[in-house]
Simulated assay, not measured.
Amino acid sequence: MPKALILIADGSEEIEFVTPYDVLTRAGFEVKSVGVQLKNEGWAHMTRNVRIVPDAPTLLSLPFQTAHEAYDVLVIPGGGPGAATFSNNDAVLELISNFQQAGKWVAAICAGTTALVAAEKKLGGKKVVVTSHPSVKEQIEKEGWGYSEERVVVNTGVITSRGPGTALLFSLTIVEEIMGKEKRDEVAGPMIVAPTL
């Protein structure tokens, strides 16, 4: 059974957190969410005022230095304030770097892509072609990353996507890349997913 680790912070985007959690669970992943610098102990205050309780309250509550050994994919939701928290958190940047160095998948959506850029800038690594919410495109290109306007981009172990409206396609792409197209179709069917996302 593959395992997914999903980050969550105050100001993370609800749809971009819940959709991957839901879809990956349906696909048979063991999914765990972990809070990053939450102001209120035990729950995250999301961008649209929804409150979500993560499975683990902080990165320190799991051995994040070795998380890349236990999980197959690290998922980073967007939401401007949440993405800024991830991008400025040394433990998150180390987590991203460790996943990439281990050849594990890193998936980021919307402004979450800026955390990949921050990790590469601080710790080194590879710059690949990515996508993101249009509001952070210039910031990403300024750091020398290739950029695509596609709804989802898969490139050398990195999956990126554009925003809340692409969260379902993003999530199904993670399933397909890790478990294959047959599993993606098996998950999408009962969800009545439209042929074109």
Score class of each variant (00 low, 15 high):
Lys104Val: 00
Lys104Asn: 03
Trp105Asp: 08
Trp105Thr: 01
Trp105Val: 04
Trp105Glu: 02
Val106Ile: 03
Val106Phe: 10
Val106Asn: 01
Ala107Ile: 03
Ala107Phe: 08
Ala107Lys: 08
Ala108His: 10
Ala108Glu: 10
Ala108Trp: 03
Ala108Tyr: 09
Cys110Ala: 05
Cys110Val: 03
Ala111Gln: 04
Ala111Val: 04
Ala111Glu: 02
Ala111Cys: 01
Ala111His: 07
Gly112Pro: 09
Gly112Val: 12
Gly112Ser: 11
Gly112Met: 04
Gly112Ala: 07
Thr113Trp: 02
Thr113Ser: 14
Thr113Arg: 05
Thr114Trp: 14
Thr114Gln: 13
Thr114Ile: 12
Thr114Phe: 10
Ala115Met: 07
Ala115Leu: 13
Ala115Trp: 13
Ala115Asp: 08
Ala115Tyr: 10
Leu116Gly: 11
Leu116Asn: 10
Leu116Ser: 13
Leu116Asp: 11
Val117His: 13
Val117Gly: 11
Val117Trp: 13
Val117Ile: 13
Val117Tyr: 06
Ala119Ser: 15
Ala119Asp: 08
Ala119Gln: 06
Ala119Tyr: 02
Ala119Arg: 05
Glu120Val: 15
Glu120Ser: 14
Lys121Arg: 14
Lys121Phe: 03
Lys121Val: 07
Lys121Ile: 07
Lys122Gly: 00
Lys122Trp: 04
Leu123Asn: 06
Leu123Thr: 06
Leu123Trp: 10
Leu123His: 00
Gly124Met: 04
Gly124Trp: 05
Gly124Tyr: 03
Gly124Arg: 01
Gly125Val: 01
Gly125Tyr: 05
Gly125Ser: 10
Lys126Glu: 14
Lys127Gly: 01
Lys127Phe: 07
Lys127Gln: 05
Lys127Tyr: 05
Lys127Trp: 09
Lys127Arg: 15
Val129Trp: 11
Val129Pro: 04
Val129Arg: 06
Val129Asn: 13
Val130Leu: 03
Val130Gln: 08
Val130Trp: 09
Thr131Glu: 08
Thr131Ile: 11
Ser132Ile: 07
Ser132Lys: 10
Ser132Cys: 09
Ser132Gln: 09
His133Thr: 13
His133Ser: 14
His133Phe: 07
His133Leu: 08
His133Asp: 08
Pro134Leu: 00
Pro134Ile: 09
Pro134Asn: 01
Ser135Arg: 01
Ser135Phe: 08
Ser135Met: 05
Ser135Gly: 01
Val136Tyr: 04
Lys137Arg: 11
Lys137Ile: 03
Lys137Gln: 04
Glu138Ala: 15
Glu138Trp: 11
Glu138Ile: 09
Glu138Lys: 15
Glu138Ser: 15
Glu138Asn: 13
Glu138Asp: 14
Gln139Pro: 10
Gln139Gly: 11
Gln139Tyr: 15
Gln139Glu: 15
Ile140Phe: 12
Ile140Thr: 12
Ile140Gly: 12
Glu141Ile: 15
Glu141His: 09
Lys142Gln: 15
Gly144Gln: 09
Gly144Trp: 05
Gly144Tyr: 09
Trp145Cys: 11
Trp145Met: 12
Trp145Tyr: 15
Trp145Asp: 06
Gly146Ile: 05
